[in-house]
Design a protein around this nucleic acid. Structure first.
Lengths: 245, 245
DNA sequence: GATATCTGTGTACGACGCACACTGTGTGCG
DNA sequence: CGCACACAGTGTGCGTCGTACACAGATATC
């Protein structure tokens, strides 16, 4: 009745280091981590779209099909890539307050996304169960440990920050490969051209209020903390409410 | 120097109804909207992955290549799909406060995502410039019109809510096609199995605090408003700050 | 009515994920 | 120590994808 580790998908078994008993035959040449690293190198250089089974295998000096000895499907390759790309979250400062803690967590998260922007494009089919992903989850929850939040609250709060970082990352991801903010400029120009004041009065007024070059939907560092603090202010209100009761 | 409408991608020209001068030759059989509707029907039934040029063309009784008479690339087809799938945002209640307004906007947004969950998987290469997308933007900004927020603040606040709705939608999207919450249950079971209390004390404690069946990362209706209100509380703090100065 | 220009078609190419049958090799067990 | 077997890596092939290109016929404008 109760599920054992044997029922886990093979990728998860491997990532958790759940090896079966020793068996005859040759040993594998690579570790899952090697394959993940090779795939990550391709994704960093040429985008997630350039990651194909044959490209990854080729980067390792392999045939395409040999990859399937290590990974059951391309989706599983994605799982490995995410695990390696995110790595471990930074340790928690024990004497920091919840706000500093979750801020540090969010910054680490953002930095990981900056290093590997393609992670936001990986199609995620199910919630994460791999070791390092759980470690991120653990650290996120720990940030709220000494607050008055209920367990459910903590989960919601962590997800809120998680969503915020991912969301702003997705907005920034285009402009990361965009030298000189050229794309942002043409966007502003086109928006100004199309935002007819009769049909879109508020957009038009926003555009008029300041040079349109600044009106690109782009989160620089300051914007990141500005929005993050807005989110944290909301969580702070929740904590205050829970403390009172 | 100044860009004209002629420099816009063809899809945008068509969506904005910018027809060129009359020219000889046969008239097109379809409108862009027909193609979008056909593609949407496929995506609603079988997911975004099932949307291919040949499937869409086939649904219209066409050859694959004829689609390219209407749309320059598959990415442009995505643009049309989004435009048709989202449609117009609901009108704004003029005598509602900003909080009611942006809540209504968020709910409309969430409903659109519920109707067409695949919209969250559409790879978005650049910020939207199509007419109805701008209308959503306009309505979102209007919610904050009679607050003390600066234009830049309003944009940030709208993006924050936008990000929140998208993010929670992405968490829910898997469970939408999951009857009986079966996927959520196996996730909870596996999480309980893997969350070693030594390595993941906080997760383990969270799991212990209540029946693990509830510990799936899943936003039902109440969770949606709970998180939304947390976000809005943060925006409210910002408004209060701006009002004081 | 002439003609320029369009619509829709057919064919073709390279890339992709992956199923499957196969070869050879190295390991653990008897 | 030897051997059998499980496993690593290969090769071939299928169906699907996006789309480039050349083409035929229809038709709206002048």
């Amino acid at each position: 009745m109760s599920e054992t580790t044997a029922d886990l998908p093979r990728v998860l078994q491997q990532l958790w280091g759940l090896e079966g008993p020793a068996r005859p035959g040759p040993k594998p040449t690579f570790q899952l981590g090697d394959i993940g690293a090779a795939a990550i190198r391709i994704a960093d250089e040429s985008g997630l779209g350039a990651v194909s089974m044959s490209k990854v295998a080729g980067a390792l000096g392999f045939t395409t099909m040999s990859l399937y000895r290590y990974v059951d499907s391309k989706d599983d390759l994605y799982v490995v890539m995410l695990e390696v790309a995110f790595g471990s979250p930074g340790p928690l400062d024990p004497k920091a307050g919840w706000r500093e803690r979750i801020t540090a967590w969010a910054v680490s998260f953002r930095d990981a996304i900056r290093r590997h922007p393609w992670v936001l494009q990986v199609p995620v089919l199910e919630p994460p169960l791999s070791p390092l992903q759980l470690e991120w989850m653990e650290r996120g929850l720990q940030a709220f440990e000494d607050t008055a939040l209920t367990p459910r609250d903590s989960l919601s709060a962590m997800l809120l920050v998680n969503i915020y970082v991912r969301g702003t990352g997705a907005l920034t991801v285009n402009s990361l490969t965009d030298v000189d903010g050229e794309a942002g400029k043409t966007y502003a120009r086109r928006l100004k051209m199309l935002a007819d004041p009769d049909r879109f009065p508020t957009i038009a007024r926003n555009l008029q209020a300041r040079p349109p070059e600044d009106f690109d939907v782009d989160y620089d560092a300051d914007e990141f903390f500005f929005g993050l603090n807005t989110v944290l202010d909301g969580i702070e209100a929740l904590i205050a409410r829970r403390t009172k009761n």
